[in-house]
Each structure stands twice: as C-alpha cells, then as structure tokens.
C-alpha cells in the first residue's frame, strides 16, 4: 500500500470519527426525539464508513492467510502425488499378498512332500536290506527336491522386503512434508481382530529372545 493511500485512509478515518462525534452530540441534544429517517440513514452511513478502514485491514489479512493456505495445499497436493498412494494400494500391496500366498503354498507343498516321504520310509519293510536301502534313497531324493522351495520362498521374501521398504520410504516422505516427525501419534483404536487377540491372549509366535522357553515353562508345572 502506498504512502499517499495510507494518508488518504487516515484522513478519511478522522473525518468519519469527527462526523460521528458531531452526530452523537446532536442526538444527545435532541435526546433521540424527533429523529427522522434521514438521520437514521445518516448514522448508518457514518458507522459503515467509520468501519471501512478496519474492514479493509481484516480483509487484507484474511486474504493473505487464505493465499498462504492455498499455496500450502497446492504444495502438499504436489508432494502427496509423489507418494503415489494409488500405486501402493493397487499394485504394491496386492503384489505382496500374492507373494505371501505363494510362500504359504510352497511351504505347504514342500512340507506335505517331506512328510509323505518320511511316512513312507517308516513303512518300508526291513526284510531285504538292499531293497530297503534303495527305497529309502528314493524317498530321500524326493525330500531333497522338495527342499528347493527354500530358494524360491527366499526370493519371494526378498521381493516383499523391497516393497515394504518402498512403502516405508513413501510414508516417511509424507510424514516429513506434513511435519509429523515429532508429533505424538494418536491413541490406537483397536479393530475387531485386535480386540479378539487381546481378549483371548493371542500374541502369536514370539521372536528370538521374547517369550519363555520350554524349560522355564516346565518349572511352572
């Protein structure tokens, strides 16, 4: 805003205030009796014009604030687009689900083969040692073949880990742009599964170093 404009506004403000004081005195003298419609309109006009500088100031501040918010939202939209949430929900997570299902299938298949071989070995008659040895070797070969699942599942696990890393990276990026680093997370609300797990003490398998071992349990019994 230019100096001339500020001076003009200040002069206008002073005129309005003077006019208001003069009108106020006039009203006091008349004690609000015999007030014409013209007087009332005059008061309204004076009040409005006296508020103009204030309204202009508020208007300009709000405008600046809104402009700032708009720019921030635009920036965030641009940054959020980089996170590629659609790619995570439409591709990355379904892919991980497929990989995990394949791992479960492969381990189930391998376990079934290994167990079938072991059961077969237990059933082999030991009358003829040469036949027994051949039959056992045959079953052992099947067990070796079945163990190849480990290589494939290992590769699938690697793919899952890489995907999780990508998702982690993108979530970190989102947290950074939203300045969420130091913010305490809100209290987690338990979903139906989590509530069931809590009620029925379903913790799942413990990791190394967690939980109690068999000998500690034995002492309790």
């Amino acid at each position: 805003m230019g100096v001339r404009k500020i001076k003009h506004n200040e002069a206008q403000e002073e005129t309005s205030i003077d006019a208001l004081i003069s009108l106020s005195d006039k009203l006091k003298e008349n004690k609000a009796k015999n007030m014409s419609l013209t007087d009332v309109i005059g008061v309204a006009e004076l009040l409005t014009s006296s508020l103009q500088p204030l309204l202009r100031q508020i208007d300009s501040t709000i405008h600046k604030e809104l402009r700032g918010i708009l720019l921030r939202i635009e920036g965030l939209r641009h940054e959020i687009a980089k996170v590629r949430a659609d790619d995570i929900s439409e591709h990355k997570i379904p892919e991980m689900g497929k990989e995990l299902s394949a791992i479960v299938e492969a381990t189930e298949g391998a376990t079934d083969t290994i167990m079938t071989c072991a059961e077969a070995v237990l059933e082999i008659k030991t009358d003829n040692i040469k036949e027994y040895k051949m039959a056992v070797s045959d079953q052992m070969m099947h067990i070796f073949e079945a163990c190849s699942f480990q290589d494939l599942t290992g590769q699938r696990v690697t793919k899952i880990v890489q995907t999780v890393e990508i998702i982690e990276e993108r979530i970190n990026l989102l947290c950074e742009m939203l300045d969420m680093g130091d913010e305490a997370p809100p209290a987690e609300e338990l979903n139906a599964n989590q509530k069931r797990n809590k009620e029925l003490i379903l913790n799942g398998p413990a990791n190394d170093g967690e939980g109690v071992n068999q000998s500690a349990i034995d002492k309790l019994f």
Binding site: I201, N203, G204, P205, A206, E210, G211, N213, I217, F221
Partner: peptide
C-alpha cells in the same frame, strides 16, 4: 502352541 508369552502360560495354568 506357539504362544510363549508368560501371560499365556499363566492364563492356561
């Protein structure tokens, strides 16, 4: 079971 937390063992006992 795979549940090996102390709270599980105690609850079962």
């Amino acid at each position: 079971t795979a549940e090996s937390k102390t709270e599980n063992v105690i609850a079962a006992k």
